[in-house]
Design a protein around this nucleic acid. Structure first.
Lengths: 212, 212
DNA sequence: CCTTTTATGTAACGATCGATACATAAATAT
DNA sequence: ATATTTATGTATCGATCGTTACATAAAAGG
């Protein structure tokens, strides 16, 4: 019933080789889930976009749920990575947050891709979507919050921010702003509109950090 | 094919009277759509929650889509109304925004109701959900943005805010924060966590308004 | 009374959902 | 050459989707 999902290419090939590019098919599936959500994407939609038959889909990915989980993993590794590198590489916490939000605005408004974030919008209703799907996305969102928290705590550790700075509250605030930007982007907001939100969020920095 | 949907109770009753409370059934439908989204809620789910048969549902509400539209209208008229009265009744724009956000935090974290906002979370994927559904929610979100904008413009007109104040950018920012709070609430955030976001958003006020 | 009108309950419609059985094809292993 | 292993293509599974036909029940209008 279960089969290993990821062959590290070193594995010698037994049996008939597959006639499609597994990674390319996965990318197509990701884009479809990204645009239509988990519930809104059918197997028929997927097989059409991936240009394979349903038995091939199930042989290669296991199930719709497993395919979604693998697609979100692919998404995490390949989309919007500038957002998180910006967070870590900026010299100050303030610049880190601002670059984080600016990269978010940029990534969420790319016209050649679905707008907003797959992690934020892919499956929000636990009662209906497969619980595992919803929990996985929730866990990834929590990881994003943690990444923000770590960067802010680093700012405190480095003396940039006062020890009284509430890193957790600030991380929650900026993560929430980012989530809101996904819905804003889905509503067709321009990049300028997203950047207006970024400006608003950064206007909070002085108040939060107690800096002049 | 079409039938009038809203009898203002003055209409004399012809034919067999319905045996269920239409408004109560609508409220049950609203709660289900609120919890599970449009796509995630099936007719079977609805008839079970409303305690009526599917022919009764169709006779009374027309279709799943029409029922959703009516349910969102009911939601708008009956849920979270404090949010918008707070916006209009506060004496200053600053207090209006803060009360708006605090009422949002309160409404989105009520334990006896689905968390977050039906308008924000009910149908985000236009490609899959009925287009009319998605457009209707989008329109309602735009109306919310407009309400914020009007209140801020009033602050400018009353001299509370400088004429240089960018009401539209600020309205966009605060609307986005509110949308993010819906996702945050869906992730199980406590009321305290939502209020941390409110504090962050209000910390932006000084920077946005140029006030001390 | 009878007709008209509307609601209810049972039962089912065609379409689509996610997922597979089966036979066949193409590769390696012995 | 034969066996083994894996992928493909066709065709379809039972379940559920939103929706409706149909006969019956309960009210008002004539």
């Amino acid at each position: 019933m279960y089969r290993s999902t990821q062959k590290k290419s070193a594995m010698p090939e037994r049996g008939r080789p597959r006639t499609f590019d597994r990674t390319a098919a996965l990318r197509q599936a990701m884009e479809l889930f990204w645009a239509k959500g988990y519930e809104g994407t059918s197997i028929a939609d997927l097989t059409a976009a991936m240009a394979i038959s349903s038995p091939s889909l199930y042989a290669a990915f296991g199930s719709k749920e497993a395919l979604f989980l693998e697609a979100t993993d692919y998404y995490t590794r390949n989309e919007g990575t500038e957002i998180w590198t910006a967070l870590d590489e900026a010299p100050t916490a303030c610049q880190a947050i601002e670059n984080f939000l600016r990269q978010t605005a940029k990534a969420y408004s790319q016209s050649d891709r679905p707008q907003g974030c797959l992690i934020a919008l892919g499956a929000l209703h636990k009662d209906s979507s497969s619980g595992a799907i919803c929990d996985d996305l929730r866990r990834r969102r929590a990881e994003n919050h943690t990444a923000l928290l770590r960067r802010l705590e680093r700012g405190v550790a480095e003396g940039e921010l006062p020890t009284s700075f509430d890193s957790d509250a600030a991380a929650t605030f900026y993560a929430t702003v980012q989530h809101g930007m996904s819905i804003q982007a889905r509503d067709g907001a321009s990049r300028a509109a997203l950047l207006a939100t970024v400006a608003g969020a950064m206007a909070a920095w002085q108040g939060l950090s107690g800096t002049a």
